[in-house]
């Protein structure tokens, strides 16, 4: 037998779904399938820019989004048309990104344990800064600096801050997306924001 299964099939092929049913099962012209397709394609920009933050690389981001869209269509039977398509798609994006990282074994998934959370704990800003409103210290930061500072965060914090402050998901939605408790979501957002503050604060010409 010369044909054999690959030792590590692509992540999408492992999705526990046969891809044969779903809203699309009614055929290319069914209203459900059309609405699902339009809904998915309508989120491409959001998915892409989030994928860019997760991968920090355009080619990987495009591949990740394409993988996410394929998974979404394969799993369309499990999507409840009355629920939040956007949150559902971001859940798939997150899982696809995690699987890719795992498959490539290039990085470990960080900050899943309390130990890592504590180790990453940044000291609070010096009390001496209280005289000046903090927003004054960083408000001159331009989008490219801010984007670079976000990209420099460890993945778990980068993702949490991005989903909350740019994509504007609720704590509950993010918790479901990342399969972590809401308290962990909040502490990652908090820690991520404080790390950003420290970085941007040091970039500011007033403080440099």
């Amino acid at each position: 037998m010369r044909i054999r299964r690959a030792p590590r099939p692509d992540a999408a092929a492992r999705a526990p779904h046969d891809g044969k049913a779903g809203p699309a099962a009614a055929g290319p012209t069914s209203p459900h399938a059309a609405a699902f397709e339009a809904g998915v394609l309508g989120e491409l920009d959001s998915l892409y820019r989030t994928a860019l933050r997760l991968t920090r690389n355009q080619a990987d981001a495009e591949d990740l989004v394409q993988d996410t869209v394929l998974r979404a269509f394969r799993a369309s039977a499990r999507f409840d048309p009355g629920s939040n398509l956007r949150a559902w798609l971001f859940t798939i994006l997150h899982n696809a990104a995690r699987n890719r990282v795992r498959d490539r074994a290039r990085e470990t998934v960080t900050a899943d344990s309390d130990i890592v959370e504590r180790a990453m704990d940044a000291p609070p800003p010096a009390a001496g800064n209280l005289e000046t409103p903090e927003s004054l210290l960083i408000r001159e930061a331009l989008a490219p600096d801010l984007r670079a500072a976000i990209d420099a965060l460890p993945e778990a914090y980068r993702e949490a801050v991005w989903l909350r402050d740019v994509e504007e998901f609720t704590y509950t939605e993010i918790a479901e997306m990342l399969s972590i408790p809401p308290g962990t979501v909040m502490s990652r957002i908090s820690r991520g924001r404080r790390m950003l503050f420290d970085r941007l604060h040091h970039l500011s010409p007033v403080n440099a």
């Binding site: 800003p125 409103p133 927003s135 960083i138 408000r139 924001r193 404080r194 503050f197």
Partner: peptide
Amino acid sequence: AAERAVRSLIQ
């Protein structure tokens, strides 16, 4: 204050 500053900046 730091969190709020970052949130405002991102917004």
